[in-house]
Amino acid sequence: TFYNFIMGFQNDNTPFGILAEHVSEDKAFPRLEERHQVIRAYVMSNYTDHQLIETTNRAISLYMANL
């Protein structure tokens, strides 16, 4: 899942690491979701930090390219 992918960046001092920290603390994050459209919609609806949203979009693109 995307959640498992992004958790691989925990403790990294990178934008993906920052995203992983936010996702791990977000109890409502769709952890079992595999459809990138649902993940993107969730982030757009629940996150207000523009940098975090952009990082999510980049992470989703990388995740999709590696499926």
Rank of each mutant, 00 (worst) to 15 (best):
T1R: 05
T1W: 06
T1Y: 06
F2Y: 03
Y3H: 03
Y3A: 01
Y3W: 07
N4H: 11
N4D: 15
N4A: 13
F5R: 01
F5M: 01
I6P: 00
I6M: 07
M7I: 08
M7A: 04
G8L: 12
G8T: 14
G8M: 14
F9P: 02
F9G: 00
Q10E: 08
N11K: 09
D12M: 12
N13F: 07
N13T: 09
F16R: 00
F16V: 02
F16L: 11
I18E: 10
I18K: 14
H22A: 11
V23W: 03
V23F: 12
S24M: 14
S24P: 03
S24L: 14
S24A: 12
S24G: 10
E25V: 10
D26V: 06
A28G: 13
A28T: 14
A28P: 03
A28V: 06
F29K: 00
F29L: 01
P30K: 02
P30I: 04
P30C: 03
R31I: 08
R31Y: 07
R31W: 06
L32T: 13
L32M: 13
L32H: 14
L32I: 06
E33R: 02
E33Y: 03
E33M: 06
E34W: 15
E34T: 15
E34H: 15
R35H: 10
R35V: 05
H36Y: 12
V38M: 09
R40H: 10
A41R: 08
A41S: 09
A41T: 09
A41Y: 10
A41G: 07
V43S: 02
V43D: 02
S45N: 13
S45P: 01
S45L: 12
S45K: 13
N46R: 07
N46G: 03
T48K: 13
T48W: 08
D49R: 04
H50I: 15
H50G: 10
H50Q: 14
Q51A: 13
I53A: 05
I53C: 06
I53H: 06
E54A: 10
E54F: 06
T55Y: 10
T56E: 01
A59K: 03
A59E: 02
I60F: 06
I60L: 15
I60D: 00
L62R: 06
M64C: 09
A65H: 11
N66M: 15
L67G: 11
L67W: 07
